[in-house]
Design a protein around this nucleic acid. Sequence first.
DNA 1: CGGAATCCTTTTGGATACTG
DNA 2: CAGTATCCAAAAGGATTCCG
Lengths: 140, 140
Amino acid sequence: METIKKQASPKISFSTCTTREVLKLIGDQWTALVIYALESGTKRFSQLCSQIDGISRKMLTQTLRDLEYNGLVQRVVYPVIPPHVEYSLTPLGRTLIEPIGVLRQWAQEHLNEVEQARTEQEQTQRISVQEQVASIVQQR
Amino acid sequence: METIKKQASPKISFSTCTTREVLKLIGDQWTALVIYALESGTKRFSQLCSQIDGISRKMLTQTLRDLEYNGLVQRVVYPVIPPHVEYSLTPLGRTLIEPIGVLRQWAQEHLNEVEQARTEQEQTQRISVQEQVASIVQQR
DNA sequence: CGGAATCCTTTTGGATACTG
DNA sequence: CAGTATCCAAAAGGATTCCG
C-alpha cells in the first residue's frame, strides 16, 4: 500500500462553505417539496397541505414561514372571512427551481443504482476495524 | 381578488417523488460536505474529521456508513497496526459532484439576496390571519 | 380557513470513555 | 488510528385543541 499522495489538501474552510448554507435553506425534509409544489403557480395553504403528502399543518406553516423569512416565498393575506391566504415563489425563489430540478434529474437517473447498491450491501458483511486488527494479531 | 385559476393541479404524488429520496440521501447536515471533501480524492478518516469543520467522529462515522451503504463511497481497510482506513467516492458517488456543484453555485450567486431579504423581513411586521380578520370585524 | 399553542414522543447529536 | 458504546441534552415533529 502506498501512502496517499498528500495533494496539499485544499484546507477548505467548511465553516464558511456555501454548500452548508444552501442545505440549511432547502436541505430539510419539506422545504424543497414546497418549492416544487409552488413551481406550478400560486397555491393556498390547504392546497399545499393536501398536495404534499404526509406534511402536517404545523410543518407546512413552519416551512412556509422560513421560506418567507428568507425571501423565497411571498405570502398574501386576503382580509375575508373565512381567511384566504395565498403563497407563491418570489423571483429569488424561482431561481431555485433549476438547482432543485438538477437534483431531481440526478435522482431519476441514479436512484435505481443506489437501490441496487443497498441490496448488494445487505448481502456482504462489513469488515470492522477491530476484526481486521484481530486477524493479523492472530496470525503472528 | 380573483379566485385562483384552478390549473388542474398536477396531483403530483409526493410519496413517490424522487426529490424526496435524493434529499434523504444528501439533505442532512453533513453528507454533502463529506462528498465535497472527497471530491479532491481519497482521504483518511482523520483527514476528513479535521477538514470538515465541526463534525464529530460519531457523525462522520455515521455519515460515511450511510454513504457506503448507498454505494456512494468506498471504504478500504488496510490490515495494519495502527489501523488505516481510506475513503473515496465510487463512480456513482462522483455523479453527485455536479448536482451539488449546482447548489453551491446557486448559493454563491444568491445567498446575499437571501441575507438581504432576512434583514428586510426583520424590519417589517408580519400580518397574522387573526389580526386581519379582527380588523374587518371591527370595521362593521 | 389558516393558523397558534400546548403536550408529548421520537430523533438527533454532542461529550466522554473505552477498545483492538 | 479508527472506530464503538453509553449517556444525556436538545431539537424535531406528530397529535390535539383552540381561535378569530
